[in-house]
Amino acid sequence: MTMLARLVRYRVTVILGLTLLVASLTVPGFLSISTLSLGLDRGATIGIIATGMTVLLIARQIDLSVGSTFALAGITAVMLQPAIGIWPAALAGVLAGAAAGAINGLLSVVFKVNALVATLATMLIFRSIAHWLTDSQPVPGTDIMLSVALSKIYLEIFTLRSALFVGAILLLHVWLTRTVAGRNLFAVGSNADAAEASGIAPGRTVFLAFVFAGALAGVAGVLQSLTTNTGSPVFGAELIVTVIAAVVVGGTRIEGGRGSALGTLGGVLTIAALTTAMEFQSVPAYIQQVVSGLILILLVVLDRTVRPGPRTHAAAGASG
């Protein structure tokens, strides 16, 4: 039982390790720096969005619109390039993402719309705006050389994108575990009434969580547009499922109150490694989804059935 409980506790690490092991045995040269670098870069987009989603899920919220926000931010960043220049346009793209998050936050905090419903609606709306702005056509950027520069590999493994992802995860880890605001986030997600009665403002916390998630979806969208030199209204249409899967595989509870940044890192890497390995083996895409789905179910079932120690353990010792 304790062995199993320990395995469950570090399940992300175990699953990631197993994935890497199987991949290295079946895919020749999988553990080479260049393959890992590629996998990390491919995971970075999901990862940056998942970083924001981790915060939202801990706060017992969810944002289904991140894929649409991703597209909208990218389009903003590309379409404004001729008018205000590349970097101001990129900033505008990120701000567009934050604004989208603010709209979601407003709906769910001020107008008390359930986050699932509110962001389902904005998912459709943001996506439609993206099509409308672009006439449903991809928009090219002004500087094609920039995408080459952005794909440059540093320290033999990091691209700008993957470095940003890992940096964001580490910052989030410190914020969640060590800062007062981070601990308050768990309180809000676990028991909002208790948090409020203790003088914490749950509404403000939740609103800022939405803005944060929107801004990070914006960052990912802008990076995507700059590296492809294209803003497209269909970008990120299927991202949301993978993002939520990565966060949940990482041990963050969809019911709020529990989760970790390093877990999300593990979840993202697992999914990235799986995808990369299976692509190298020419496994069809739909089989890849089946495997990801099964791993997700396995982890959640383990989480629900194996508890680290009986609930009343401490109680029995104290009052006997």
């Binding site: 410190v174 060590r178 800062t179 007062v180 981070g182 601990r183 308050n184 768990f186 309180a187 997600g189 676990s190 028991n191 009434d193 208790a194 948090a195 009665a197 203790s198 003088g199 914490i200 109150g257 529990r258």
Partner: peptide, 28 residues
Amino acid sequence: HQELNLVPDLSVAENVYLGRMPRRWGLA
């Protein structure tokens, strides 16, 4: 409160200091 107003997912210490956690160099 009669109906317990605590946060199940935080530690006992964090519950005791909920809403007024002490800071040191900006961290809890």
